[in-house]
Amino acid sequence: MTTAAVMSLPITSDLEIAGVRQAVREAAVAAGFSLVEQTKVVTAASELARNTLVHGGGGRLEITMLERPQGKGIRLRFRDEGPGIADVETALSDGYTTGHGLGLGLGGARRLVQEFAIDTGPGRGTTVTVTAWPRGARRV
C-alpha cells in the first residue's frame, strides 16, 4: 500500500469543523467514493472533529490518501492534547456521554468506516484513526 498527499487541518472552532467536512468530502471524491460512501465518511469525520473540539479542547486532522491494488482509500487521524478517555469501551457504547450529546458520535463513527482505532488514556490526549475504502477496494 502506498500513501500520499498528507494534509493537515486545524480543529479549533465550529467553522473549522465545517472545513473538515469539506476537505474530507473532496478527498473521498478524489478516491472515487460513491455518494453514499462519501456521506458516511464525511459524517464520521464530523462526529470525530466535534469530539476533538468539544471534549479534547481542539486539535488537528491529518488526511492521508491511500492506494493499494484494489483501489484508493482515505485515512483520517484526529489528534488532541485534551484530558483523554479513561474507559474507551464505555465511551464507545451507544448513549454514553459526559456532556449533553446523544452519546452516539464515537460508536456511530465506528460503524461508518472500515477501520477504527483509538489511542488515548487519562492525561495523554486522544488520537482517533479511521480508514475508509470504497466498496470495490475493500477485499484485501
Binding site: A4, A5, E26, V29, A30, G32, M65, E67, K72
Partner: peptide
C-alpha cells in the same frame, strides 16, 4: 515517479469524475 503518479492520479480522477 511512483509518488508523482499517485498524486496526479488523485487529481485526475477528481477531474474526470
Amino acid at each position: 515517479l511512483d509518488q508523482v503518479r499517485a498524486l496526479l492520479a488523485q487529481v485526475i480522477a477528481a477531474r474526470s469524475q
